[in-house]
Design a protein around this nucleic acid. Structure first.
Lengths: 310, 310
DNA sequence: TGGCGACATAAGCTGGGTTTATGAGCAACA
DNA sequence: TGTTGCTCATAAACCCAGCTTATGTCGCCA
C-alpha cells in the first residue's frame, strides 16, 4: 500500500526535490573542493574548467541560500555551513556510487568476466557495497548481475550462466556447495513515536505473536522465517508485497514491522525507525555464497567471495 | 589525509558519476512510476507533461543500458531490473531528502519559528532525520539550524538565539536543563579485509590501548571520550581532523579506527567497514537535548523534542 | 465502432552549464 | 619593488538536455 508513501514521505513543498537539491555533478564538485581546498584544483580533477567550477559552486550557493566556501586568493575553504552541507552531500554521492556499480553490473548482461546471481535482498543491499570494494581492488573486472530467488540462482549456476551465487534461504539448493558469509536477522522496528518505540524491556515471543504486525506477504522469505520462529502464528496488521512498502508503513507509525536488519540500516541511523528489543525468538538466518559442487570459485569470483567474508 | 580518499573511493572510470547516474529528477520520476504504475500519472504528479516523462525514462534506460519499465497501453510496470534500480534510486532520493531538510534549516538563518542549535555530530547525522519527521507532522514549521560545539550551543540558548539545543559532551553546560535523548557509543571499526575484521573474540581494553589506531585529533570530542575510557593511553597510528577522513582511512584498510556509531551506520550496512567487538571499555556517551533552565520547550520545540526521544 | 486511456513521435524553444578570453587580488621571491 | 605564479571572478558565445505543444498509434471497453 504505497499511498502511505505519499502521505508520509511525499513532496511537502511545491517544486520537487530536484529543484532544491543540487545535481550530482555539483555535489561531486563540492566534495572535490572540500578535499582539495581549491576550486581550480577541483575543476581539474573533474575535467572541467575553473570558471565552470566557480560558476557552479556559486549557483549552488544561490540555490541553497547559504555560503559554502570561503574564497581567497590562496584557495578555498569550506564555511561551517559548507562542511555540514558537504557531509550531507557525501551521503548522496555514496548512494549514487552504489547505484552506479549496481547498474553497471546489471547492464553487462552476458559475457562479462564475473557473472553473479543473487537473491533480491542481497542484490539490493549488500552487493553494491561489495562491488564497490571489488572495483577498488580489481578496477577492470567487469561484473554482471542477475537477481532472482534461490531456485533461479541455482539454475543459473548449474547451467553455467553464473560464476558465483548468493542466497538467503534456510536451505541450500542441491548441487551447490556453500559457505556462510553473514548472518542476517529479522528485527522488529517501529516509528519513534510508537508505544514500542521507547520500550527497553524486550518483547517476548508470545507477546510478539499476539501483536498485529506490519508484514511481508505470506510466502515471502522474511515471512517464512518469522512464521517458523513463532510457530506459524504471526498476526498481520497488514500484509504488503515489498520491503519498501513495509518500511513506509512502519515509518508512518502504523505499527511495528518485522524486517531484515539489512533493509533498515539507513532508517535506524536516521532515526526514522527504532529497533524494538525482542527476546526468545530465533530470527536469524544465514546468508550464503554458493557455487556448483566441486567448482570452487577462482579468479575474480574468489576475490569477491573473500571480500564478502570480511 | 584525504588522498586516502582518492585512492580508495575516487573515480575509477573516466566520466564522473553524474554522467553515469541519472539526475535526481529522473530518479524521482522513476519512483513515481513505480508507485503509480503509469508514466502519465507520474508525469502529472511531478507537474510535467506525459511526453517529458516518457522521454526521460527512455533516456534513463539508454543511459543505464537496461529496460526499466514494461510499457503497455494499459499502464507501465517495472521490470525485475527496474525494481532493483528503483530501490537503489530510492536510497539516493532519501539521502537527497535529508540534504534538503538540512539545507532548508541552514538557510533560514534568523526569525524562524523554531531555531535549533546542535553539535556537529548531531546536526550532521541525526537532525535531518528528525526534521524530516517533524515536517511530516508539522509541514509549515520553518526551522533554522546553527551548528557548533557545546559552548556555542549554550551561548545561543542563553542569549535567546535558539529555542532548543543538542549537545553530545560528557557534561551539561551550566544554566541549561537537559534530558538524555539517545546514547551514542564509540565503536572500533576496520575494513573487512583487515585482521580484526573477522575477529569474534572481543578486544580487551589493554589490547586496544596498545594497538595503533586511526583517530581524530587530540582535543576532539571523540578523542576525549576514548582517552578517558582508556586512561589517556590511546596510541595513534595516525591522527586526522575530520570524521570523514578517519572513515576514509579505515575503509582503505590502514588499520582499526574509533568512531561514533552514528558516523558509520552506512558503511557498516554496506559492509565497507565491520565492527570489532570490544570488551571492558566504557565508550558510551549521552546525547542530550538542552534548553535554558526553567524555559521548558513549548510548541514546535516540544514536538521536535518528543520526536527525538522515540 | 466510437471513445478513452496510455504511450510514442516530431518539431521548436529555452536555459543551465560549458568554453574561451581576460581581469584582478594576494604572496613569495629575487 | 617589480615579477612570477597561484588563486578566483567576470563576460560573451555556444551547445545540448529536457521541456512543451501537437499529433499518431495501440488496445480495451461499452
Amino acid at each position: 500500500m504505497s499511498n502511505t508513501d505519499e502521505q508520509g514521505g511525499g513532496p511537502a513543498v511545491a517544486g520537487s526535490l530536484a529543484h532544491r537539491v543540487p545535481d550530482l555533478g555539483a555535489l561531486e564538485l563540492l566534495l572535490a573542493v572540500a578535499r582539495l581546498g581549491s576550486l581550480g584544483g577541483a575543476a581539474r580533477e573533474l575535467g572541467i574548467t575553473q570558471p565552470a567550477a566557480s560558476s557552479r559552486i556559486r549557483s549552488m550557493e544561490r540555490q541553497l541560500g547559504v555560503a559554502l566556501v570561503d574564497r581567497s586568493p590562496r584557495g578555498s575553504r569550506l564555511t561551517d555551513a559548507g562542511a555540514l552541507v558537504t557531509d550531507w552531500a557525501r551521503r548522496i554521492v555514496e548512494a549514487a556510487e552504489a547505484f552506479d556499480v549496481g547498474a553497471q553490473a546489471l547492464r553487462d548482461r552476458r559475457d562479462s568476466r564475473l557473472r553473479v546471481a543473487a537473491s533480491m535482498t542481497i542484490a539490493e543491499y549488500l552487493l553494491p557495497g561489495w562491488l564497490l570494494a571489488l572495483r577498488a581492488q580489481r578496477p577492470d573486472t567487469a561484473v554482471s548481475l542477475h537477481a532472482g530467488n534461490s531456485t533461479v540462482v541455482a539454475e543459473r549456476l548449474l547451467s553455467d550462466e553464473a560464476d558465483l551465487g548468493f542466497v538467503e534461504g534456510l536451505t541450500v539448493p542441491t548441487g551447490l556447495d556453500s559457505v556462510v558469509i553473514a548472518h542476517d536477522r529479522l528485527i522488529v522496528v517501529t516509528a519513534p513515536g510508537h508505544a514500542w518505540g521507547r520500550r527497553r524491556r524486550p518483547v517476548a515471543a508470545d507477546e510478539l505473536a499476539s501483536t498485529p504486525l506490519i508484514l511481508r506477504e505470506k510466502g515471502s522469505g522474511t515471512r517464512q522465517v518469522l512464521d517458523a520462529a513463532l510457530g506459524g502464528l504471526a498476526r498481520p496488521l497488514i500484509e504488503l508485497s515489498s520491503t519498501t512498502a513495509v518500511k513506509a508503513a512502519a515509518v508512518s507509525g502504523a505499527g511495528p514491522a518485522v524486517l531484515s536488519e539489512l533493509a533498515v540500516g539507513e532508517e535506524l541511523a536516521m532515526r526514522r525507525l527504532v529497533r524494538v528489543p525482542v527476546d526468545g525468538v530465533a530470527l536469524a538466518r544465514d546468508l550464503r555464497a554458493v557455487w556448483p559442487t566441486g567448482h570452487r570459485p577462482t579468479g575474480p569470483a574468489r576475490d569477491l567471495l573473500s571480500l564478502t567474508r570480511g
